[in-house]
Measured scan of single mutants.
Amino acid sequence: ATNIVSKVKWYNSTKNFGFIEQDNGGKDVFVHKSAVDAAGLHSLEEGQDVIFDLEEKQGKAYAVNLRIK
């Protein structure tokens, strides 16, 4: 899926990962520091509106092509 609009559930800049809620009630989506860095960001804030693409690797959903709404 591409261009999903949602909100950051939480992000831990010390552990370099977090999760984004899915508005459709699906499972929370993992977001890694590499996606945050690629977006030119230093961190994410809880409740922040984001747009991302969903990529599945080894049966897990990852946020990629992250951008701020």
Rank of each mutant, 00 (worst) to 15 (best):
K57F: 13
V36Q: 00
A35K: 04
G26I: 09
K15A: 08
G47H: 07
Y11C: 03
V36A: 03
G26F: 10
L44T: 00
I4F: 07
K60L: 10
H32E: 04
S43I: 11
K69P: 14
D49Y: 15
L44G: 01
S34P: 02
S13I: 12
L66K: 00
V50H: 01
G59R: 05
A61I: 15
D53W: 05
I68Q: 07
S13R: 13
D49K: 12
H42R: 13
L54S: 03
N16M: 11
S43D: 11
N12Y: 05
F52L: 03
N24W: 11
V31Q: 00
G47Q: 06
T14E: 12
H42Q: 12
K33C: 08
T14C: 14
S34F: 11
K15L: 15
E56F: 15
Q22I: 11
G18I: 03
V31M: 04
V64G: 04
I51E: 09
S13T: 12
I4S: 06
K69Q: 12
T2Y: 13
L41W: 11
N65C: 05
Y62Q: 12
N65K: 06
A63H: 02
G59A: 05
F19Q: 02
K15P: 01
H32R: 04
D23H: 14
K9P: 02
E46Y: 11
E55Q: 11
V5L: 12
E46T: 15
L54F: 07
Q22L: 13
N65H: 08
A35W: 05
N3G: 10
T14K: 14
A39M: 06
D49A: 13
D53F: 03
D53G: 02
T14A: 13
G40V: 04
E46N: 13
N16L: 07
W10F: 09
E55T: 09
K7M: 05
G47W: 05
G18A: 02
S6R: 06
G47E: 04
K60N: 08
G25M: 09
S43R: 12
A63G: 05
V29R: 03
G59F: 05
G26W: 09
K9V: 05
Y11E: 01
D53L: 04
D37S: 13
S43Q: 11
L44N: 00
K7V: 09
L41G: 05
L66R: 00
F52H: 03
A1Y: 12
D53V: 04
F30S: 01
K60P: 04
D28G: 07
Y11S: 00
D28I: 05
N65P: 00
L41E: 06
T14N: 12
E45A: 12
F30G: 00
A38N: 08
A1K: 15
N3W: 05
E21K: 14
E56P: 04
W10E: 01
I20A: 02
K27W: 08
A39L: 08
N65R: 08
V8S: 01
A39F: 03
F17T: 00
G59P: 00
D23Q: 15
N12K: 09
S34C: 10
I68A: 09
A1E: 10
K15G: 05
I68G: 06
Q48N: 06
G47Y: 05
N16H: 14
N65L: 02
K69F: 14
I68D: 06
F19D: 01
I20V: 06
R67N: 05
I51G: 04
I51V: 11
G26K: 12
L54M: 10
G18W: 04
D53Q: 05
G40T: 04
E21T: 14
V64A: 07
G25C: 10
Q48A: 09
H32M: 05
E45T: 13
E55W: 13
Y62A: 08
D49F: 15
F19L: 04
G40M: 07
H42K: 13
V5Q: 12
D37F: 14
A38P: 03
K57N: 11
S6C: 07
G59C: 06
F30A: 02
D28N: 08
G25P: 08
I68N: 06
H42G: 11
A39E: 01
Q48R: 05
G18H: 01
K9D: 00
K7T: 08
F17Q: 02
K33E: 03
L41I: 11
D53C: 04
V8E: 00
